[in-house]
């Protein structure tokens, strides 16, 4: 049976590892490399590493840095932030990324999703959507680390990204990100109901119960989380034990030697 993935997210800003709340007030919590090493040793299901300021500062992904930490990572690695062209994607895959996460570039030129899927296969194209909740309860997609309103509706945008060839959708609630108050289940559900590709829930996980809700109520295929693993004693392994006890299929890392 396909196992539900628990994915630690590492946000990276000027080489330092950071944590923010609602896409703001970033605080430095170490460097990427030790975190990658620890998660690799713990055999996590997958890792997502995002350079959160590359696009804002209009600079390319740091390929050399990616090459350095991917060399220590023997679990699937998704890298995002600053991707603008097919050439950037090619270089990230060469540097050791297994998948790339594309966000802002897709609003500016949606064809980048088609081209990436055709060239490298849908399986390595993760389309990332950051959504903000309006006062009236509707949602809007935002880009450039939440600084620009795109006018796009998350459900419709997700459907378009799937049609263009995205292999997975990473959906993040801007308001709830970093708050540890729980995922935005309504937002997640609005995406999982619209697409047939796997959806990764992100933004707001504060305990294992939140993860369970994202999977069972939100119908997500995987959950991503950052703060819960960086700022609390909770671990991906414990999350799996909790979810397994509630009937969610998870991967045991207890394999041979």
């Amino acid at each position: 049976m396909l196992k539900t993935r628990i994915i630690p997210t590492l946000l990276w800003k000027n080489i330092g590892l950071v944590k923010g709340i609602a896409f703001d007030s970033w605080r430095r919590v170490g460097t990427i490399m030790p975190a990658v090493k620890v998660y690799n040793a713990r055999q996590v299901d997958e890792l997502i590493v995002v350079d959160i300021t590359a696009t804002l500062e209009d600079r390319l992904p740091d390929f050399a840095e990616v090459e350095e930490f991917s060399a220590e990572c023997f679990v699937p690695l998704t890298v995002g932030g600053g991707i603008r062209s097919i050439e950037d994607i090619k270089q990230l895959l060469r540097a050791g990324a297994d998948k790339v996460s594309i966000n802002s570039a897709a609003y500016l030129r949606p064809e980048i999703i088609n081209e990436a899927a055709e060239r490298f296969g849908s399986q390595c194209v993760v389309a990332s959507i950051d959504a903000r909740r309006n006062p009236d309860g509707t949602y809007v997609c935002v880009s450039h680390s939440g600084t620009r309103d795109t006018g796009r509706l998350p459900g419709e945008w997700a459907a378009e990204l799937e049609l263009r060839g995205a292999g997975e959708i990473l959906i993040t609630s801007v308001e709830l990100d970093g708050t540890m108050e729980g995922y935005d289940l309504e937002l997640i559900r609005s995406i999982t109901e619209r697409v047939r590709i796997p959806v990764i829930a992100s933004g707001g996980a504060g305990n294992y119960e939140h993860m369970y809700a994202a999977l069972e109520v939100g119908r997500a295929a995987a959950v991503a989380a950052a703060s819960i693993f960086h700022f609390t004693e909770q671990t991906p392994l414990e999350a799996k034990n909790y979810l397994a006890a509630r009937g969610i299929p998870v991967r045991s890392a207890k394999v041979l030697v």
Binding site: M1, L2, K3, T4, R5, D45, E46, S122, Q123, G167, E168, R196, I197, P198, A221, A222, R251
Partner: peptide
């Protein structure tokens, strides 16, 4: 070919 409405393609993740 998906064998149920819940089956998502691509097949992504850890499987036995």
């Amino acid at each position: 070919e998906p064998d149920s409405a819940e089956t998502r393609i691509p097949h992504v993740g850890w499987n036995e």
